[in-house]
Design a protein around this nucleic acid. Sequence first.
DNA 1: CTGAAAGCGCTAACAC
DNA 2: GTGTTAGCGCTTTCAG
Lengths: 354, 354
Amino acid sequence: MKSWKIFRKFPETNLYPMKKVTIKDLAKALNLSISTISRALNDKYDINPETQAKVLAMAEEMGYSPNPIAQKLQNKKSKNIGVVVPEFRNAFFPDIISGIQDIVQPLGYQVLITQSNENSETELLNVKSLYENMVDGLIISFSSGTTDLKYYQQLVEQEFPMVQVNRVLEEINTSKVLFDDYSWAFMATEHLILQGYKNIFHLKGPKHIVVTKERLRGFEGAMKKHQLPMDPTQIIDSGVTIEDGKKAMQKLLEQGQKPDAIFAVNDPVALGAIEVLKANNIKIPNDVGVVGFSESRLSEVVQPKLTTVRQPTFEMGQAAAKLLLQEIESSISVPQTVKFSGNFKIKESSVKLI
Amino acid sequence: MKSWKIFRKFPETNLYPMKKVTIKDLAKALNLSISTISRALNDKYDINPETQAKVLAMAEEMGYSPNPIAQKLQNKKSKNIGVVVPEFRNAFFPDIISGIQDIVQPLGYQVLITQSNENSETELLNVKSLYENMVDGLIISFSSGTTDLKYYQQLVEQEFPMVQVNRVLEEINTSKVLFDDYSWAFMATEHLILQGYKNIFHLKGPKHIVVTKERLRGFEGAMKKHQLPMDPTQIIDSGVTIEDGKKAMQKLLEQGQKPDAIFAVNDPVALGAIEVLKANNIKIPNDVGVVGFSESRLSEVVQPKLTTVRQPTFEMGQAAAKLLLQEIESSISVPQTVKFSGNFKIKESSVKLI
DNA sequence: CTGAAAGCGCTAACAC
DNA sequence: GTGTTAGCGCTTTCAG
């Protein structure tokens, strides 16, 4: 077993490589007690400035750096925050994470990222591990299939700082950062309607995800507002990947359905649909208009360019981080919900050419 | 300051929520010494099976789970492994991470992921934090600009388990997991040549990255083999993003250059080039052929579909994890280099239509 | 087979 | 101002 315990002494320098230097070593070197060292290092009020200067100098010289493990054991605080996301194959969560880091790093917090592959068990393991490793708080976005909330509920009861982003579970009472999926799905659908499309189909995402439900609701709302006939067959179960989009579109065509527009739950699904449409020689946007919902950077690349709702992922990450820090650093904290707006990128896929 | 110290007692259950239960509590409950408890929990040889059974049962009942922080402080082992990547906006590193998790999780290791945004300072912070938090080993892929290797060299000297993937630094003597960029760049270029393209340009990546150099070398090798004239102006400095590709292509056209094919350092750059070509009404593949190098899932989406080299990212992650575990769990370990092969996806962008 | 005691590196009363 | 001491939760000698 090669382990941390191996520290070879280098005769040339007579130094142990890297941080073997502890507070004790400093104490010995300066003929002071370890508590004095600790006080100096932590800039306590009851330390003689001169002593402190000496200690700091020596610490520098000997390359001292504190052992965060020992500090955690003592303080029950780590200056680490944990992040749990279901996937990062799309740009969505990576961007959120960047936003989190942007806020948190300047304040000296370290971000530990964990990915659950849309698997609830892995997710639970990740959360437990993060928690037991004493992160000061958690930013979490749940996997699509998570139903066993016991552990999470316990964390909440215990007032463990936590905020949910995007893949939110209503039942868990923490601060939440959301995108206003309803309104923007409404708008996206309305855009199609205003462009003259009438027989609009929605390729729907996984059932239990709130985001999915909201986008569906937005779709239905817009259809209703404009009194377009709507039939359950216009809502197609799909998923979140290009593959899912392909399958859904394929099935739709095989069943002889004739949509004149598609509102997809997200961009990858929209792209899958586009691919199938193109393969079947159906022209976009003239035969069929398509609108997506950004979760990736794909919309810019596909031809025709995809009309889509852009979400401020980076800012959502920032918001989540701010809420979490607030909760970590203050004793009272009421769960808040922040809902973000996006913007609508109208491109070729939904504007008929004359 | 809300902190870990807050544990409210729930009168209904008379239980402290979650793991407040320590080895001590178990000892008290069973009237045994803490060392006996520890032995039982750790399945030591010198424990009475019956005692052990009792302890285990009680641990279960009281919902005991060990405090990993305390264990680390004692053992200097954490069953955590740290991962440092420069970015995860492309699918490349996420896929590698999935591969790592695939190997490591079944063995009870937890993966701590860290992202440096191509920033060497953040990278160093991440590594330090991971190291000080006593991960058992590190899988690292360096940022493009990293030049200060002191800290990393120290880690190596200290025989801290470490393996490099993809963004490798020659000077750092650890196991390495690589893709055979040279051969596949060679092959990609040769493919263009065999398709009849002659005036082939290479959109090159960032200078100091080995991967970039290897792909350039492959390009040059193939050109030389087929005795195609090659001029320094055929090698264009670019970057790694779509934007970089656009700029490079734009500049190239503005300078009046007339390539009949492009070999791009990666897919995003290829896509950028394609976009500019299309905008200038240059037909792909007939006027200009394009080949990329997969680092994303974009190649499937663009039109025309992009010929590209696919890298076995998941497997590379697995390999890195295996090497690292080997190093962690055995005392002797000679740095090894594993070089992966990929496969070549020939699509529309490089096959002239007749 | 089990218990007592030391110690991992650090912080925080409590003395002086 | 500084030193002494205890203790965070755990593992590991060392006795018995």
